[in-house]
């Protein structure tokens, strides 16, 4: 186990190096440059700016400096926010994105399990039909449409009731988090519901459940001990990869709900060709995801005896 963890960590570090390299060279292959502004620059000023950001060095030197800085956890200074460090930007905005992401996953996970179990129990009856219809909507409607509709309905509800039940956007309190994270988690929730439903159905008809029933085990116990527990396993397995989709998929929600998350910054930085912010964010996200996946794998190994870590 220990050796396995070390091996995975080393692999993780190499992967992060790969991500950093890919980002660096992709970024420098982009036509256009971050220094151009609305007003044309004279040669002299441009040269000064290039020197300031080290863009006057040969590419490989820049790469070496860049790797060196990353190793020390320094992503440099932003091009557009001239006096801010990328580290500051990440430190301030990542927690927001992470909060949103965690909540979305929790919503998706709990919701998926609940709805999935419910539909399986009430198979082919009204609750099943209604929930499965919603699930189909969740799977097939693009997230930005859902987000925009979500915000719109909030406005209408607030207008109709005359009180602001939930804020329409912004960030800061518990109330701000509810709708955006639900919207963000909806797609995953729909997916998990389907998964839970089918795994539940399989288990309802399985031998050990039948045995338990005939043995006279109380229904509540059958449900929780035998069915729910076993049916949840596949759901947990896909939760890990979902983290990646959700945390990086927050852009849309962040833009629409005016949430100061890192995703929104990234989109802005790309528009502005802010090299340092783009590279910093990508490498940071990449590293985050890599180590999250490793962590999740290790946790599985600990809690599920059927998973053997080589």
């Amino acid at each position: 186990m220990g050796r396995y963890a070390v091996k995975r960590l080393i692999q993780g570090v190499i992967t992060v190096w790969f991500i950093a390299t890919a980002t660096f060279f992709a970024m420098h292959a982009v036509p256009g440059d971050p220094l151009s502004g609305d007003k044309a620059l004279t040669e002299k000023i441009r040269a000064n700016l290039e020197a300031k950001y080290g863009l006057d060095q040969p590419l490989m030197t820049q790469y070496a400096i860049y790797l060196g800085n990353i190793a020390q956890g320094d992503f440099g200074i932003s091009f557009t926010q001239e006096n801010r460090e990328v580290n500051d930007i990440i430190r301030e905005h990542f927690p927001v994105s992470a909060t949103l992401g965690i909540l979305a996953i929790v919503f998706a996970g709990l919701g998926g399990v609940l709805w999935g179990a419910l539909t399986a129990i009430y198979r082919n009856r009204l609750p099943d039909t209604i929930i499965m219809f919603l699930v189909i909507l969740g799977i097939s409607v693009p997230s930005f449409v859902i987000a925009a509709l979500g915000q719109l309905s909030l406005v209408n509800i607030n207008e109709w009731t005359g009180v602001s039940i939930l804020p329409v956007g912004g960030w800061g309190t518990v109330w701000h988090m509810i709708v955006p994270s639900m919207v963000l988690g909806l797609g995953t929730m729909a997916y998990l519901t389907r998964l839970m439903r089918s795994s539940m159905l399989e288990i309802i008809n399985s031998d050990f459940v039948r045995t338990a029933k005939s043995k006279g085990v109380p229904p509540t116990q059958i449900f929780t001990r035998h069915q729910l527990r076993n049916a949840i396993l596949p759901v947990i397995t896909v939760l890990g990869p979902s983290i990646a989709t959700i945390t990086t998929g927050g852009f849309v929600v962040e833009i629409i709900f005016a949430i100061p998350g890192l995703g929104r910054y990234f989109v802005q930085a790309v528009q502005q060709l802010d090299y340092t912010v783009i590279m910093g964010t990508t490498v940071f996200y990449g590293a985050f995801l890599v180590f999250m996946v490793i962590l999740v794998d290790l946790i599985y190994g600990l809690i599920d005896p059927r998973v053997r870590l080589e």
């Binding site: 430190r91 301030e92 905005h93 927690p95 927001v96 909060t99 965690i102 909540l103 929790v106 919503f107 709990l110 609940l114 804020p167 912004g170 960030w171 800061g172 309190t173 518990v174 109330w175 701000h176 988090m177 509810i178 100061p260």
Partner: peptide
């Protein structure tokens, strides 16, 4: 139970988030 859990989780996250900044005054 899930609702209670989510509620307290949100509260916890908010406390956590407010320590690193970023809040909109309502």
């Amino acid at each position: 139970a899930a609702i209670v859990l989510v509620g307290s989780l949100m509260w916890g996250l908010q406390v956590l988030a407010s320590m690193v900044g970023s809040s909109t005054e309502a």
